[in-house]
Amino acid sequence: MSPDLLAILTIASMAVVTYCTRIGGFLLLRNRTLSPRTLAVLEAVPGCVLISVIAPRFVSDKPAELLALAITLLAAWRLPLLPTVIISVVATGLLRHFM
């Protein structure tokens, strides 16, 4: 099999797997009445996933990375999205360069 074909098949398999995850939970739970406990769990989903995805940042072994993360946390706490992104990127770039 040519590498090009295999690349396309890999991308296609990603797309199929991902679409199945998108409709899977919806199909399984769409006609059920959910208990308050289930709802509490579902409400926690986005936060738990988002924090898990960025968890590696919290255990970096480089001081510059940790300081950049602290600055990003502070900015995210106080500011809207765009200023936060700008401050975060600039601070990270500077810290990586100078530390």
């Binding site: 995850t21 409709i23 899977g24 939970g25 919806f26 399984l28 739970l29 579902l42 989903v45």
Partner: peptide
């Protein structure tokens, strides 16, 4: 990585 979509779709 995308297993979270199951829960997102359910929500």
């Amino acid at each position: 990585v995308n297993s979270r979509h199951l829960l997102m779709g359910a929500a």
